[in-house]
């Protein structure tokens, strides 16, 4: 269960040992790692050779790949996790089972990032976003009376007695 931290430790060791600029990922590999599309559609298979692995049977952990990707890749990842987390919280209000599924997928993503590359580990996160979006859309479609907003919310907070 906790083997991820050892893979991350090994990856950080490689990252520290590499001379500056000695390891670089092609731009296509870097940005296609954040693509939710299948490889047959976005062409990720053509840049797969650029992948750096710890061992023939052990891929580089996603957290270490992010360190190599630089601040832009890190910012995209943080934005995705923040969005999935917030949408998961909103989905839990709309539908507890959907919220549970979204939260489970989010934790699966964060867990897999310690052992698998970014593109592989992000798959559950894309699913979490899809589940949350579907739950929110379904709740909005089912709710006949919209929640009070703006002036209505003010009236609710300060009723005329």
């Amino acid at each position: 269960m906790t083997e991820g931290i050892f893979a991350v430790a090994a990856g950080l060791g490689e990252w520290r040992a590499a001379a500056p600029g000695a390891v670089s990922f092609p731009e296509a590999y870097r940005w296609l790692s954040f693509s939710p599309l299948p490889s047959a559609v976005d062409g990720f298979a053509s840049v797969l050779d650029a992948q750096i692995r710890l061992h023939a049977f052990a891929p580089m952990p996603g957290y270490v790949e992010l360190a190599w990707f630089g601040p832009a890749g890190l910012a995209v990842f943080i934005g995705l996790v923040a969005g999935a987390s917030r949408m998961g919280a909103m989905a839990t209000r709309a539908s507890p089972p959907a919220g549970a599924a979204a939260n489970l997928l989010l934790i699966a993503c964060l867990y897999l990032m310690a052992a698998y590359p970014v593109r592989t580990a992000l798959k559950p996160l894309w699913l979490a976003l899809a589940v949350s979006a579907a739950a929110l859309a379904s709740a909005r479609w089912r709710t006949p009376v919209p929640r009070p907003t703006g002036r209505q919310a003010h009236d609710v907070a300060h009723p005329i007695l």
């Binding site: 906790t2 987390s85 998961g88 839990t92 919220g99 939260n103 489970l104 934790i107 964060l110 867990y111």
Partner: peptide, 21 residues
């Protein structure tokens, strides 16, 4: 840890992993 338990559980996992390391 009611609305968004995923991050809380992940934090628990991180503490477990750090202890193991």
């Amino acid at each position: 840890a009611r609305r968004g338990p995923a991050l809380r559980l992940f934090q628990l996992y991180l503490v477990a992993a750090q202890t193991m390391a």
